[in-house]
Design a protein around this nucleic acid. Sequence first.
DNA 1: CTTTCGTCCTGACTGC
DNA 2: TGCAGTCAGGACGAAA
Length: 275
Amino acid sequence: MPELPEVETVCRGLAPLFEGQRFARVTLRRRDLRIPFPKGLAARVQGRRIEKVYRRAKYIVVALDGGDSLIAHLGMSGRMTIVARPRPFEAHDHVIFAMEDGTEVRFNDPRRFGLLTIAPTDALDGHALFRHLGPDPLDPVFTPEWLSAQLKGRKTTIKAALLDQRLVVGVGNIYACESLYRAGISPKRKAGTVAGARAEKLVPAIQQVLREAIAAGGSSLRDHVQPSGELGYFQHAWSVYGREGEPCRCGSKKAAVKRIVQGGRSTFFCPVCQT
DNA sequence: CTTTCGTCCTGACTGC
DNA sequence: TGCAGTCAGGACGAAA
């Protein structure tokens, strides 16, 4: 799925189409994704003008006139595709946003771990989905000091901690691996021991990794299509993710990327340069 | 309180 | 070619 850079890329792709336009028609082709669509969702959205599209954590927020905001999450397999000319639906096209100019945006999600809901714009921060979220890693408040304070005393691994959205949002399995590699920190290390000097390296590592991925247009594995609607999604060159057994770029002859399972999820790292 | 684990769901891939 | 088993970018709630 989409982690922070992919969601950011989707938002940036949707914004020029959405902002200033009205939703002519919204079609829900099933009654739920991960959670049920709220009653009357389509009616609340149709005819509304879109004021702004932006990202909060891994959520896409679409602020509408009239005081409501749409909230979408892509889960593991969600995609937003821009369809300029009418064409048949594809499998798992669950929600269709038809614009006044005839363009459609289709929310497709095979695994249906995604989410679409609506809430009053002035109450978003206190919304159940947002309330517990930590700072955005690209926000100035995300500092080594802040991270250190959060990690202090934590017994879980630093890899697991980075996936905890209360600590910092937007970092998923791939970027957690890549950030730890960049910082030279072992994913098996106890989170508490990263507070201090290691956090000074980790915070900029996270920010660099994410910024580079955003600059690359958002990266993808197999099923994330660019919001432009074009097929041209590309492979990102990871340093460790998905590279089990390959020599590490650190250059040590003994350094091969290793895969372990932490909390039921794959972790890739170099046992030589990450300590 | 913190931490781990199972679960939601489909599709792609691997190996027999 | 078929089929069973495994794994996948997330996040929630239950259990320990």
